[in-house]
Nucleic acid binder design. Structure first.
Lengths: 318, 318
DNA sequence: TCGTTATCTGGGCAAATGCCCAGAATGTAT
DNA sequence: ATACATTCTGGGCATTTGCCCAGATAACGA
């Protein structure tokens, strides 16, 4: 029962204490330094550590009229079941700011339920940032399951194993998919999917009570391209076939119809339900994804959306 | 459907937006001023309004080792079912700082449940500050019921109508108790309690799934004295009879046994269950309440406690 | 034991913040 | 229309913060 005085733990403890004194008790960093018996510089580092280690959570607890309004309009215009719009920072270059937090809050609403829930997950930068915003908690009653592989083309585990990130944070059983996103050949796809251990993961994913997915583009900046899952000529072929977006690797056109053939023949992710009959929430805010998001909603590949004001306005134009 | 542009609402909207840009997007106040098209001073006022209007919620999401430890020790030492300890700011004069927030968070954990819950409430400054920390939400499924009256001796509604404060904030049905805390005579008590409409409130209170109460002292600084419910000589009589604390007006001694007679004959609050068989959480941090808190735990008038480090240490001494 | 590395201290400084003021602009009551 | 109150502006200033530095100190590995 004797506990090791883990130096990292102690430091985080101090950071938490400093953060508490700063943000809750309203102390100045000078006062904190005195109370904790350290220099002001150390105190300032502790406070900023508390923020960067996400010990301190700041959230906005007020419905901004314009955002509520845009969300309602989006729901009506696209027949969404769920929609949340957060403010936009016109100057920020971030592609996830605010939306990742809102999606995390939405996820937490499910996690706090005592009733067991199966939560499906896509991948990508947005969902990874969302994962980092989820509060640590204890929810062994839920299951987190990935719809998509997280193995990079070189065989390494990619940094986008969202399900494991969240699963470890909230102490929930999680089912990652140890595959690449797209197989090299149709034959390889058949081989990989024949693994018996995958059966359970795929079954769980199709039974998910709620699923969160990122929404990718099909263009020169496609995440699939950047991460090396497809070659530039494959992206061009997809674009020629009308592709405007992808969800967990599945490419679709402006009407939200899946592209026939091409890379879709080799995608290893759990097939998309179209139209989605269970709740599937898309999370996206970068303007470059406009057509991709629109297509996903029109084809009802998603029936929920978390985005920001700017994207919401664009989605409602004309 | 045309909405009035309520100026207050617009201002809060702007405050929320400014708060978002400041705390979430990390803008400086200069940038916010430019983006919102106002002066920097106005921006700074909006940001501080967002804080003071509690639009911005900051919470610490990290278990500080020492606090966890103290909570565990308190649970063991006093046989508590629930205990939470928050950090203390040695310099702060506030009598609710931190503990009110923690109690609000605890309350919110019950409020987010989709399953209907009956929540009992005491009164006092601590619970009022706790009420102000509760996030606005929609929970019509729950019921909030007061165990104690909120009518001041002069007949005015006191500022401590905690149940209505929370009930309006979270859109839940609430049942305040339109009585003083203590009647002037035994006869008046019988008359007041005969009101048929009180029956339902009292029944609900005794059925509460969870109850939050403040813990008052019986001394020269007693809240009951300050608020004019008892006279100084009555307090002295209670002290002579061994009184160390009071919960919803019921005075008890160091062993947690209710005082016989005296003001307890005229208290209008719902009688305390002793030992408490349903969850009753006491909320207190001021060191002057040490004996009162100890008595409440020893006599098991409460079986849960929210307090801070300093009080926790005192409670564990010898 | 002696370097090497990481961390803390204390000084210092530019930027950001909180808050004061007087005056302008706006809305309100007479 | 005039006086009054409220709010915003823009200037200004003391405090606080974020971050740089060089030197001191502690921790670690050879």
């Amino acid at each position: 029962m004797a506990r090791k005085p883990d130096p990292d733990q102690i430091k985080l403890d101090d950071a938490a204490r400093a953060g508490w004194l700063y943000y809750i008790a309203g102390n100045t960093q000078d006062e904190i330094a005195r109370k904790l018996g350290v220099s002001r510089q150390t105190a300032q580092r502790l406070v900023s550590l508390a923020v960067s280690a996400r010990l301190i959570k700041v959230r906005l607890d007020h419905p901004i009229g314009r955002c509520i309004d845009l969300a309602r309009q989006l729901r009506d215009a696209y027949g969404l079941d769920r929609c949340e719009v957060v403010p936009a920072d016109p100057a920020s270059a971030s592609e996830t700011l605010g939306v990742a937090q809102a999606a995390a809050a939405e996820l937490e609403r499910h996690l706090v339920s005592p009733h067991p829930v199966i939560i499906g997950m896509g991948t990508g930068r947005m969902l990874r940032d969302m994962a980092d915003q989820v509060s640590p908690m204890e929810c062994p009653q839920h299951k987190l399951v990935s719809r998509v592989g997280h193995i990079a083309p070189d065989g390494s585990a990619s940094q986008f194993d969202v399900v494991s990130r969240i699963g470890e944070r909230v102490a929930a059983p999680h089912y990652p998919m140890p595959l690449p996103v797209i197989a090299n050949t149709v034959h390889e796809k058949a081989l990989l999917l024949a693994q018996p251990t995958l059966r359970n993961v795929i079954d769980l994913a199709t039974q998910a009570d709620i699923t969160f997915v990122g929404i990718g583009t099909v263009d020169d900046h496609a995440a699939l391209l950047r991460d090396g899952f497809v070659r530039p000529e494959e992206v061009r072929a997809l674009m020629k076939a009308g592709g405007v977006g992808e969800i967990t690797g599945w490419a679709y056109d402006a009407k939200g119809q899946l592209i026939d053939g091409l890379t879709n023949d080799r995608v290893l992710s759990v097939p998309l339900d179209h139209p989605a009959r269970r709740p599937v929430t898309g999370v996206a805010m970068a303007l470059g994804r406009l057509k991709a998001v629109k297509g996903a909603m029109v084809g009802r590949l998603i029936n929920g959306l978390v985005t920001n004001e700017r994207m919401a306005e664009k989605l409602l134009e004309k």
